[in-house]
Design a protein around this nucleic acid. Structure first.
Lengths: 209, 209, 209, 209
DNA sequence: GATTAACCGAGACGGTACGTCACGTCTTTAA
DNA sequence: TTAAAGACGTGACGTACCGTCTCGGTTAATC
């Protein structure tokens, strides 16, 4: 009973694959979710997450405010999902050598950070996560997810004997990714291929035996 | 230049040494600035910068809202200055060797980042700077200022022959500081002495000849 | 013409009989207008139109301030309508003779002016109308409306041969109504039956052939 | 002691002929009273008594707000005096016949009411007097003072045998003055010589034997 | 085919905070 | 001591956005 009310009251955005109850009544408008999330990101980019008004999002999405609140419990929840959509994980290819793998991964990372959804959204994500435990956890998940390919690269490097086995994985990953975050968020220095090369030049000798 | 008009209209919070105009009329209440800024940070810590109400700050500071708006042009401007006050730069000592200097500097940095004003405030600063050019510039200034001691350490190291002269300063600094920022803002991993030691162990060999 | 846009933006307080547009969205709260106007007059009577605070009216009416401003464009507009409601026109009966008709009308007028809504409100109405063209016009309308029955009485008198046909209607009406206004607003002399009789005694002979 | 404090604290606008105490310190600025009162009326005429700001008056008078409040206890007190200055009584001449005297008096009254200080100020005076007993009394005084010449005219008329002796003075005066007030404040009809003639034509026969 | 239940848009609702403005007072320096 | 200048606490203003709540109308699955 409670579950039904719960479900009917609020969003289904939890990857339920099969909700076989046929759901009487008019089904939810098909493209609305997409339109709302898109509008959310658009508005956020224009006026910042601060200054972002639900009425504006609703109008932009061609949707009523009630429709939004039928699907997300709060402005935070909506923004959260919009952010999650905005950033999708990197995946790493196996090019045969640590150097090439790292170069590929870091170039990819640099490119994404330089502009695009993640670039626009990351600062807001971070700020929000300070006072929102739920977002903090999702952000942690995301970060872990993003670290995974890098860990895999290093793992393969160790197996191939290209990387020293006595180093802490976390510290290594931090050493590679940290400078990107730092430049992006604080120094504003360019995130280009030259930087990737410099960084690789600096760090690669360290991790090779 | 624009700043002059700005200053005469609103606050004098720019460390001007000599304003020799006789300043007619009742002078601004002495401790008010301090009280307001303190109240701002207090309230921000309690309820977040979001959820922070000007009326509450005013009451807390024992001051009227009008007095606040006489000194700062907006809520943003007030928070901005409160944030700037909350973080003051690190300075580096000369302990005789690059290793010791770096260790000292990074431990200091780790300590500050782990908790305290800067820790609380940095995420907000970053987020805000996305849509506020003025804050962005102030943040850049601050960052540059904070990088200075690290550059000095490396410079001394080169002069002593402890550090390779063929490396890019910026990249080196990024490699040292980036991981701290990354951990603080995204991974949430601890910023302790062990991490400092790991990082130094990883990076020091790279920069020594 | 401008009035149409005006009306669609703000209140419908103009007695439109047929607004056939289907009126989408949640309809305006039914009794709110009444509650707000009543509260307005109540508060005004207690603390004067000066000293009257919108928040107080809102609270008294059990309504939010936004609801008030959704229906009236300003404090002035609200008060204006409250005032208009406070005074409703006299109507005249036909008692068969000019003397009786006039006596009835003037006694009615005297009674209303002596106390009640109109008495409380007229001074404010007048003052406000000096700098508010819109109110000035509404006041003119109201005045014209109030003069109508008196004109009708005199008209009937002429038809019956009880009243001279060579006199200016306006001047006659002014001569009858003016003394009431004068006493009410400036001299503070009583508006009682004796005064009505005196005035009739003075003026009736003049207008009869 | 109390008297001294009283005097030094607040205004001297009570016709003190000789204040022989030498009054240490800087003397009060000479033309300030005049300048302030003039500015008050000017501003009032421009934006209404509502909307009239003390700061504006001060600036207009070339005077500080403190100076105003040193001389008048409140905004009301200042306006009150400004109003009193704005209206000065009519006086009637003796032209030999009631008809001529009345015509002269009423033409004078019409002229004053049509425009000028009294015309601008009367509505405000009336409104204010509703909630201000002191002003109400001053207004009554003024009204009585203005009625006096009219009473004198009628008195002379009775003595000459031009006016019936059995009529109530007050009612007669009301019948003559009331229509002016009514037109001025409510109908907005013109106050010209034609109106004076009409009114005289209507009322004179009534009061003659 | 009628019923019914959940949806939809529009938009009004009670709140809460905003930044502004005017009041009357207070506190400086200058005359 | 009074003046001009201008900052002060107070408190109302009118606006904006929140998240909720009707409305009249659609759109399926169920009866």
């Amino acid at each position: 009973m409670a579950a039904t009310a719960e479900r009917s009251r609020r969003s289904d955005h939890n990857g339920d694959v099969t909700d076989d109850a046929p759901r009487r009544g008019r089904p939810r408008s098909a493209g609305a979710d997409e339109a709302i999330l898109t509008a959310t990101l658009d508005v956020a980019r224009e006026v910042g997450f601060r200054g972002m008004a639900m009425d504006v999002i609703a109008e932009r999405a061609g949707v009523s405010k009630a429709t939004i609140y039928r699907r997300w419990a709060s402005k935070e929840a909506l923004v959260l999902e919009a952010l999650r959509r905005a950033i999708n994980p990197l995946d790493a290819v196996d090019l045969g050598s640590v150097r090439d793998d790292l170069a590929s991964y870091l170039r990819n990372l640099a490119e994404r950070m330089a502009s695009g959804n993640m670039a626009d959204v990351l600062p807001h994500l971070i700020e929000w996560s300070v006072h929102d435990r739920q977002l903090r956890e999702q952000l942690d998940d995301y970060v872990a997810h993003r670290r995974a390919p890098l860990v895999a690269i290093l793992q393969r490097g160790i197996e191939r004997g290209e990387v020293r086995a006595d180093l802490d994985f976390d510290t290594m990953v931090d050493a590679f990714v940290g400078p990107f975050i730092y430049r992006k968020l604080l120094t504003g220095s360019p995130l280009d291929d030259a930087f990737v090369d410099d960084l690789l030049g600096l760090l690669l000798p360290t991790i090779t035996p």
